[in-house]
Design a protein around this nucleic acid. Structure first.
Length: 709
DNA sequence: TTAGGGTTAG
């Protein structure tokens, strides 16, 4: 029996959803293996190669701690663990491998310093001093070294990593000063606050060189510093070093590392580590469950969240406010607003007060789910219970109003923020939300007014407010104004991002051919010249599909995942609206499908085939419909497939601000081509046709006699 | 906030 069952071999079939294969990486269009978030490691004395595989990471553990166990790589493949049952150790003659110390590192009680008052004055002087080394020399002339406790207290109060390092140098210069682990730990913490990963590693190396022991507090500080600097490779390297040097992590260090793996998206490793710690006798605490809950939320893994809830219940761990906040947010990310709501009610019923973070998460969830009633009820409760509000919560409420189209409520909130006694003054997020509200409500004048007010009041401009306003002006066909907003933004140092590029593409799609389009493409050229290049290729009859495909893939790989489909939609719209070669729209739709931008477009049940157009733009929807009809005609001609009794098309009802108009545009398209689809009366945005009606229409539309005529 | 881990906005 192999106890180190850490293999992540993809060939093992794993029954529980927690162990399902990881989702495809964000760079799925690319054939390279650039999927790891692990950054390059910096050189240290005890560097080991960073790896994303747990078996590699823990190999030293298996060598140092599990010497009685087989350690050859081939022997590390074990039957997959099953959840939620705890691993059972089938060989009682062998001791359980221990992966963490069950007792936390003890901390001596803080020793109260009798000379606190004069020290407070000195710590203030040192904190404010522009020249710390001189100030220290003045305060502690030769022969008057600070006591250990005084030095520790002063070091703790400096609030600047540079000064912490200088203070450490000063202590080092004193004869016989007992510079122990604690001093280094305090400086490491200060370096962590300053995001100084390089100095953290350097200082830890100095501890090793000077034979100052590294303890659990040292390691947990180093590991969280690495995390804060997004140097996950470094975090794992130092964690591994603990085992190699014979120091057992305690639960604080261990849960810090669980979070590192979680942030890397290595969920299987997290679960394995979690289970192994439990098997060592660990009773996980709220922090560990918070890490697990957040991880499953990020992955949209509802089963994982339920697993966390069940584990807590089984182990009798009561969630605290942080755990509730994490789980509420996680359920939102997993697309389960109902569970978020019940967790919130459970939290309140348990006597825990929701804080700003709880309410921010919940309001955001209700807004995204378009649960107006719940959102408004919660808002009322917030007011009547005087639950705490901060500017993030205000802004989230405003964004929720934008999602739900609650213009009046948003205006009230915004006015409330402008009251002079409010500390939550409107900032760029608040203005963006208001521009968004007016933009999606078709009120470009008001949106422009908000933007101008933002500029007048010196509120820092951000890319999102410009994007929302340009979008709104584009929809209103005020192309010149949209271009001016873009120019103002870039003049003020706004760097266009992918969303803004997508927005410019959508504006280009509604432009008149010629001057208007050229103006918008002039903006786009400054933001993403490659997109303008692709548009030129699409326009050029001579450019072949292979070239288009290569460039399309290159652009999509460079683009953020969430803009890829909008990019493709807009490109199709431009091709259709601007007189590009007629095959281009179909080519782009084909590429979009090829690269998985339109999952679930087609569905087939025995009695009905359907086309779900809800994530498509108007042009892309028409293209997809045409393609579908052609493919159905092929089926009729080839008689290879038995057609179902009915066919349906979904456009969505247009309640979402981004899908507005698809249902009505599609209706007119159906009328134009006289297709026999009828809108389902009780279901807005749903169209059906029977086989009886559709086949004659297909014949009339696509049969060679008609096409050649 | 006194040497260590987990939670808020397009």
């Amino acid at each position: 029996m192999v106890l180190l069952c850490a293999s992540t071999s993809p060939t093992i079939s794993i029954p529980h959803p927690l162990f399902s294969p990881l989702k495809p990486p964000a760079t799925f269009l690319c054939h390279s293996s650039k999927t790891s978030a692990v950054t390059a490691s910096s050189p240290t004395a005890d560097q080991t190669p960073s790896s994303s595989s747990l078996s590699d990471q823990l190999l030293p553990l298996s060598l140092t701690l599990l010497t009685s166990q087989p350690t050859s790589p081939s022997a590390t493949v074990a039957p997959p663990p099953r959840l939620p049952a705890k691993p059972t150790w089938t060989n009682p003659s062998k001791p359980r491998p221990t992966v963490l110390a069950l007792r936390r590192q003890p901390r001596p009680p803080f020793s109260h310093n009798p000379s606190l008052r004069p020290l407070t004055a000195l710590s203030r002087t040192l904190r404010l001093s522009p020249d710390l080394p001189s100030a220290l020399s003045a305060a502690f002339p030769p022969g008057h070294s600070p006591s250990r406790d005084d030095a520790l207290l002063l070091l703790n109060s400096l609030r600047s990593w540079q000064k912490s390092l200088q203070f450490l140098d000063f202590l080092r210069s004193l004869p016989d000063f007992p510079l122990d682990t604690i001093f280094y730990n305090v400086v490491l913490k200060s370096l962590r606050a300053g995001h100084q990963w390089h100095h953290v590693e350097r200082l830890a190396g100095e501890m090793i060189d000077a034979s100052v022991p590294l303890d659990n507090i040292t390691y947990s500080t180093i590991i969280t510093a690495a995390k804060r600097c997004r140097r996950f490779d470094g975090a794992l390297r130092w964690f591994e070093r603990m085992y190699r040097t014979g120091l057992m992590p305690d639960e604080v260090t261990y849960s810090a590392v669980l979070d590192v793996y979680a942030r890397l998206g290595h969920r299987e490793e997290v679960v394995t580590l979690y289970e192994r710690a439990c098997a060592s006798g660990w009773r996980p605490d709220a922090v560990a469950f918070s890490v697990l809950g957040k991880m499953f939320g990020e992955a949209g893994d509802y089963d994982g969240i339920r697993y966390v809830l069940k584990e807590m219940k089984d182990l009798g761990v009561k969630p605290n406010a942080v755990v509730y906040n994490t789980l509420i947010q996680a359920t939102g990310k997993a697309g389960k607003p109902g569970l978020a709501r019940s967790l919130f009610e459970e939290m309140v019923a348990a006597g825990l007060s929701p804080n700003e973070k709880t309410l921010t998460s919940l309001i955001k969830i209700y807004g995204k789910a378009r649960w107006s009633r719940d959102a408004l009820e919660l808002w009322e409760r917030m007011k009547s219970n005087r639950w705490p509000m901060d500017f993030i919560l205000y802004n989230t409420l405003l964004s929720m109003c934008a999602d739900l189209g609650l213009e009046e409520e948003a205006e009230k909130l915004f006015e409330d923020m402008r009251r002079p006694d409010r500390y939550a003054r409107p900032d760029s997020w608040s203005y963006t939300a208001m521009i968004n509200i007016y933009g999606s409500g078709g009120k470009p004048d008001r949106a422009v007014k908000m933007f101008e007010e933002m500029l007048e009041k010196g509120v820092e401009l951000n890319v999102m407010s410009c994007t929302c306003l340009i979008q709104c002006l584009g929809k209103a066909r005020r192309i010149g104004d949209a271009v001016r907003v873009f120019e103002t933004a870039t003049e003020r140092g706004i760097r266009p991002d992918d969303r803004l590029c997508g927005c410019l593409l959508s504006v280009a799609a509604v432009c008149e051919e010629g001057g208007e389009t050229d103006m918008v493409l002039g903006c786009l050229k400054k933001a993403n010249n490659r997109l303008v290049g692709l548009l030129k290729m699409l326009r050029d009859e001579q450019v072949g599909f292979g070239e288009i495909k290569d460039e399309f893939r290159g652009i999509m790989n460079e683009a953020a995942v969430e803009v890829r489909r909008p990019f493709c939609n807009c490109l199709i719209d431009i091709c259709r609206n601007q007189g590009h070669p007629s095959r281009r729209a179909n080519e782009l739709l084909h590429l979009g499908n090829l690269y998985g931008l339109y999952p679930g477009l087609h569905a087939r049940k025995s009695e009905e085939w359907s086309l779900d157009l809800r994530s498509l733009s108007v042009g892309a929807a028409k293209t997809a419909f045409e393609e579908w009809m052609k493919s159905l005609w092929d089926s009729v001609v080839e008689e290879e497939e038995v057609l179902p009794f009915s066919f349906s098309v979904y456009t969505g009802s247009g309640t979402h601000k981004f899908s507005q108009g698809l249902a009505s545009s599609f209706t007119s398209h159906l009328n134009q081509v006289a297709a026999p689809f009828r809108q389902v009366e009780e279901k807005c945005g749903s169209f059906v046709a029977s086989k009886e009606d559709l086949v004659p229409w297909l014949r009339a539309t696509f049969s060679p006699a008609v096409v050649n005529a």
